[in-house]
Simulated assay, not measured.
Amino acid sequence: MRILNSLIEQAKNPNGWVGSFMLRMMNTVHTGMNKWAFKKLPLEKDSIMLDIGCGGGKTIQALSKIIPEGKIYGIDYSEQAVKDSIQANFKDVETGKVTIFKADVTNAPFQEKFFDTITGFQTHYFWDDIESGVKEIFRILKHGGCVLLVAEVYKMNYHMESYKTKDEMEQLLINTGFHNVISYENKNKGWLMVKGSK
């Protein structure tokens, strides 16, 4: 049980060499999920994007190829994740196309109506206050912008006391002010994606 709890904590807030190893594993595991989700997301080549819980940086890498003229930000509350994500995107960080730093979704250090698109892969079930996190996403998203939250359903069920289902997640976005809220499920993989527009 102690080992399991330690692994869960490392998944939530990676640190040290164990955390770095887990981040590399996440990068590999999330590749298929990213490809599936991005097919449902209209992205302009010059979009300004935010990836919340950027982990090992693989999502940012994929986004950088899709939006060659855009700007991508990544935040994570794990110092190890920030370090590894910067390393994974080193060239884009050096040119200024990508900016990655430590921050919390419930208190995002961005001005209102800043982003065209905001993504969160395998992260929202770890947030201390998901309602505050979604409200903050709404604040920093431009009118007409889109949010995409993607996760494995079994992890949502394990980590969350509420908002475990597609209907609950959709209602959370609607209650926050999002419209055109829609969900997609990949039942073979057990993935759920909830998308909303501002």
Score class of each variant (00 low, 15 high):
S6K: 12
Q10M: 13
K12G: 08
G16P: 00
V18A: 03
V18M: 12
S20E: 10
R24M: 04
M25P: 07
V29A: 12
H30K: 14
H30E: 12
G32M: 10
N34M: 13
N34T: 10
K35H: 03
E44M: 15
I48L: 12
M49S: 00
I52W: 06
G53K: 07
G55E: 11
K58Q: 15
I60S: 11
I60T: 08
I60E: 11
A62T: 09
S64Y: 04
I66P: 02
Y73D: 02
Y73C: 04
E79M: 11
Q80D: 14
K83E: 14
D84V: 00
D84L: 05
A88V: 05
A88S: 09
V93Q: 09
E94V: 05
T95E: 04
T95Q: 06
I100C: 00
F101L: 07
F101A: 06
N107L: 12
A108G: 05
T119L: 08
T119W: 08
G120R: 05
F121Y: 02
T123A: 14
T123D: 05
F126E: 12
W127G: 03
D128H: 07
D129T: 02
I130E: 06
I130T: 01
E131I: 14
V134F: 05
K135E: 13
I137V: 11
F138C: 08
L141N: 08
K142V: 15
G144C: 12
G145S: 02
C146F: 04
V150H: 00
V150G: 04
E152I: 08
E152D: 10
M156S: 11
E161F: 00
E161V: 10
D167F: 00
L172R: 14
I174M: 12
T176F: 07
G177T: 15
G177F: 00
F178N: 05
Y184E: 04
E185A: 04
E185W: 07
N186C: 07
K189R: 03
K189Y: 01
G190T: 14
W191G: 01
L192M: 07
K195H: 09
G196A: 06
G196F: 01
S197D: 15
S197L: 08
K198Q: 11
